[in-house]
Amino acid sequence: MVETHNRVRLTLLVVALVGFATVTMVVDRGALRGRARDLPPWAGPLLDIAVPLQKSLAYPVDFVRERWDRYVALIGVQEVNSELRSQLARLQEENLQLREGLVASGRLARISEMRAGFEVPMLPAELVGSDVSPWFRSVLLDRGRADGVLSGMTVISENGLAGLVVSTSNHASKAMLLLDRQTAVDGTVQRSRARGIVRGGSDEALLFEFVARGADVLPGDMVMTSGLDGVHPKGLLVGTVKSVAEAGTDLLRTAVLEPAVDFGRLEQVFVMLRRGPTLELLYSSQTGDTAADVAEAAP
């Protein structure tokens, strides 16, 4: 009798847990289709607890790496320094010439007026964990809603576009990296303005898909965000074309890109505290929170 009772209880428990898991998946799928994807109330605190614990787990490795970078890896820095100095001098000269050109055409004053509208506040964030599944590429950041971070904000590194914030808790957030197969970014070739969609590929490479057959794309070309997807701002470096597949009889071509960001060495990123117009429209219509409101509320 007791055994039967226990068996019934176990069956009910399994059915309830399977049902709950299925419901959460369906709800999360809805989030992928444009609804706000903040973590449910029970999950946020778990992520908040994980962040300091993971930071402490990473501390010994970070300590050794920092000491290595500060002392051992500095051998040969003098040559790099002199090279950078000469590069800086060249760029300063180039900058001066460009400014002269702009002043001459009377556009500098107008550009400086517009600049305030373009400047996006950025928040530095540290990577405290990476995806536990080898099939997905997301990272855990140590900044959350309390710092003004919202789902849909762009994540960059000093080298270019790194990914997009997909879910947040109070003190942590999850960002999907460009390398994830679920990512799609509207890109354009800087030299020829040829357009395509950048997606995560295999072996740490990106794919530049849906490039028109006759479009001018060559190895070495730099691909930037076009801004037309309304998700990422225009002009962020995505990667460099490594190879372009022959079109054959197809109307569209695919190129392989080397990402601008070295994802294997990514430690710190910057979250752009403003969402693209498409995501801002989508998210603010559901939650009522605009990125500007949250950024103002953040310390």
Partner: peptide
């Protein structure tokens, strides 16, 4: 929570 999959 620590992965990029759907929750659940």
């Amino acid at each position: 929570l620590l992965s990029g999959t759907l929750l659940g």
